[in-house]
Design a protein around this nucleic acid. Structure first.
Length: 119
DNA sequence: TGCATGACTCGAA
DNA sequence: GTTCGAGCCATGC
């Protein structure tokens, strides 16, 4: 399927758009309740930016005070490495998230975004 | 302005 | 079930 955004001309500057993008992504991440998890791709789509999974990661890394531990890769796999991965798993288990092998049991803990409302 | 990088995703082997 | 390669997009230098 075509992935063109076909968005409006948008007289807003690129910086403003980028700022809103980050804001929406952060909002989506913060919308994940305790004991639930989501994936980079799902968050990007929920924020209105399908295919921007890497931007979700960037926001998580640069953002502050975000529940980063609730964000996983496709299928519920932890994409972090070493220490961070251990901490993420530890935090999730502390929230009651159950792991199935190396992945989170998405069937039971995946958070479905009800579509983020635009302000 | 342009190139390189990255906490990704999906499909195929 | 795991690994590899190509594709996408924004950010940083």
């Amino acid at each position: 399927m075509a992935k063109k955004h076909g968005d409006s001309p948008a007289r807003r500057s690129k910086q403003d758009q980028a700022g809103e993008r980050r804001l929406r992504i952060e909002r989506a991440i913060r919308a994940i309740p305790r004991g639930k998890v989501s994936t980079y791709g799902a968050i990007a789509r929920a924020a209105g930016f399908p295919g921007a999974a890497r931007q979700v990661a960037a926001v998580l890394r640069r953002g502050f005070g975000l529940p980063w531990q609730r964000v996983l890769g496709a299928g519920g796999a932890i994409k972090l490495i070493g220490d961070s991965a251990m901490e993420q798993r530890f935090r999730l288990e502390a929230e009651g998230v159950h792991f199935r092998g190396r992945k989170v049991d998405m069937k039971a803990h995946e958070w479905k975004f009800g579509r983020v409302k635009r302000t």
